[in-house]
Design a protein around this nucleic acid. Structure first.
Lengths: 246, 246
DNA sequence: CGGCATTTTGACAATCGTCAATCAGTGTGG
DNA sequence: CCACACTGATTGACGATTGTCAAAATGCCG
């Protein structure tokens, strides 16, 4: 089973055997982190780059009034703080939502990879730019779609992203977070998050129980959400189709 | 007068005389574009990279229901489509809001710069990552702040960004766009945009007339908006202080 | 069983959008 | 010069969406 990082990168960039071998080596010494732990605080400048290998984490910012916005879901294969070496300090925090497996990659290793492995370097560029594209779509989602469609859109995205790293079946993925946390990502209150969720359930679009999100009708959910996957820039075919990992 | 690209990059990355000279050469043959013209459509894959030298443009997406979300303001020194060479196709459009001066940079030139000028390459990385950081802050802005504070926050950001490229005084900048356009950026209707604007005026925080936005009390506006400039990552001092260009 | 977090529900209030009308500014043709 | 059209700003009335508060229900775990 390839590491989720390689699965992801190969949906947007070409790697050869040497690249893959080098990347596999980077992922050698993972560590476990519990749910809801703060990994990195705003203002810090960690010297290692953190990569999610399993579980679900998030970027977030907390405002003076205590409100929290989750800015991104970090799923297996996602970097937490790839930018910090260049930007100097984190402008947001990183926390786990579920128990996670993570690796810390020394900054020098990243530097080595980007310097001596041009395809890996390009793949990292691709990954960074896709992260940005996802942010743009989230902004559209929050700005222009009503709560229920916004939620549907987020779920369509998560399904695809989990599939590209072998963490989802054709129509379901593990999503064991609270509605409050989900609401923080959508910019909604808990109550309204709950109502939107119920609407999707009642419409027969999804099921969410025991931490598993099942999309009952992928086409209809996409239609309802206005979801087009182009912004994820998954231009290359993956070697292995979707299927539950582990 | 340095090009706005150089002014901007030097707030986050070191360049030497050779770098600056090379970058100046890139900006040699600008062209004028009228207000409200579409420069690049979603789905296109332009072969040149476009750079704003003067004026105000935007990234945007239009939904099936006709609603438009402006995803970013592009000000002098900003790239419109730096990512397209790697991502393959635009996932959003680019349009001018005011008359603009632009340059088209051949993709090979960008490739040359990033290959043979390590400081420029790092500066472009910095710029890309700051764009991403701005998107994160916009997301927080839309998700967690009420309309008037959100608007105030956007204005604080624009003031700083215009200042870094010599397009603003200590408290004012040209902002000749319609309230509908501003609303599209904030995710608000025209009417509510107007009301939020009036609130800021009535509070004595800003003035907007004849296309000039003046911040009457920068500290109070920042306080009201909860604005902290750290996400812009302007870590280096610029050579020339703020001052109206031209 | 008893706590505790989480989900769910109801009632109500605040924010924000929509519709429609008015007002102000600008440019154009006669 | 004025009438006219047009765009953009502003206002009021109303409705829809979403947030807040508080309580009840559910589920989980010791």
């Amino acid at each position: 089973m390839p590491s989720p990082l390689i699965s992801k990168l190969e949906r947007g960039a070409y790697l050869n055997d040497e690249d893959r071998a080098r990347l596999e080596k980077v992922v050698r010494h993972p560590r476990r982190v519990g749910a809801r732990e703060n990994l990195i605080h705003e203002g810090e400048a960690p010297s290692n780059v953190h990569l999610v290998l399993d579980g679900l984490a998030c970027r977030y910012k907390v405002l003076a009034n205590g409100r929290r916005q989750i800015i991104a879901f970090l799923i297996p294969g996602d970097f937490c703080d790839f930018h910090v070496a260049i930007l100097g300090a984190m402008d947001h925090g990183i926390a786990t939502l579920t128990p996670c497996t993570m690796v810390s990659i020394p900054a020098e290793t990243i530097l080595e990879l980007t310097t001596y492995y041009p395809r890996i370097s390009r793949a990292f560029w691709w990954s960074t730019l896709v992260d940005e594209a996802i942010l743009r779509e989230w902004l559209v989602n929050m700005g222009q779609r009503p709560a229920d469609r916004q939620m549907a859109h987020a779920l369509c995205e998560l399904l695809v992203r989990f599939q590209t790293v072998g963490r989802a079946t054709a129509d379901s993925f593990g999503f064991p977070i609270t509605q409050e946390e989900f609401g923080d990502a959508l910019g909604l209150s808990v109550v309204h998050t709950n109502r939107s969720l119920q609407y999707l359930r009642q419409e027969g679009l999804i099921t969410l129980a025991g931490g598993v999100m099942t999309v009952l009708d992928v086409d209809r959910l996409r239609e309802f959400a206005g979801f087009k996957a182009n912004y994820l820039h998954l231009t290359l075919l993956s070697n292995d189709g979707p299927g539950m990992a582990d």
